[in-house]
């Protein structure tokens, strides 16, 4: 199967490690939180305040705020906008992200 990286002939630098809820995942230089999580097969990283339902990317351009996530202990970051750096810690955000 052809991948988007192959389609665009992308040759990023070496992958680095970040964590999602303590689990190590790989990320590429230039990837946002959302891109790395999608590539790792993860599509949800937040539960809603009311019903506790899973959410992930919806608009992908910073408008809808559905992809909120906790990065390096800061809640309410938009996964579609925030770039990743080696060692970043991503945590699934539950509700407002201020309860834990």
């Amino acid at each position: 199967m052809r991948s988007p990286l192959e389609l665009a002939d992308a040759r990023p630098g070496p992958a680095f490690t970040v964590t999602l809820d303590g689990r190590e995942i790989e990320a590429l230089p230039g990837q946002t939180v959302a891109a790395a999580l999608w590539t790792a097969g993860v599509t949800s990283w937040r539960t809603t305040r009311g019903e506790g339902r899973p959410r992930g990317i919806f608009c992908g351009i910073g408008v809808c705020f559905d992809c909120l996530v906790t990065v390096n202990d800061r809640p309410n970051q938009r996964a579609c906008l925030v770039p990743l750096h080696p060692g970043d810690t991503i945590r699934t955000q539950e509700g407002t992200g201020h309860d834990d």
């Binding site: 665009a8 002939d9 992308a10 040759r11 630098g13 590429l28 230089p29």
Partner: peptide, 8 residues
């Protein structure tokens, strides 16, 4: 694409 992805 993000510059660091170095898409040719």
């Amino acid at each position: 694409p993000a510059a660091e992805l170095r898409a040719r």
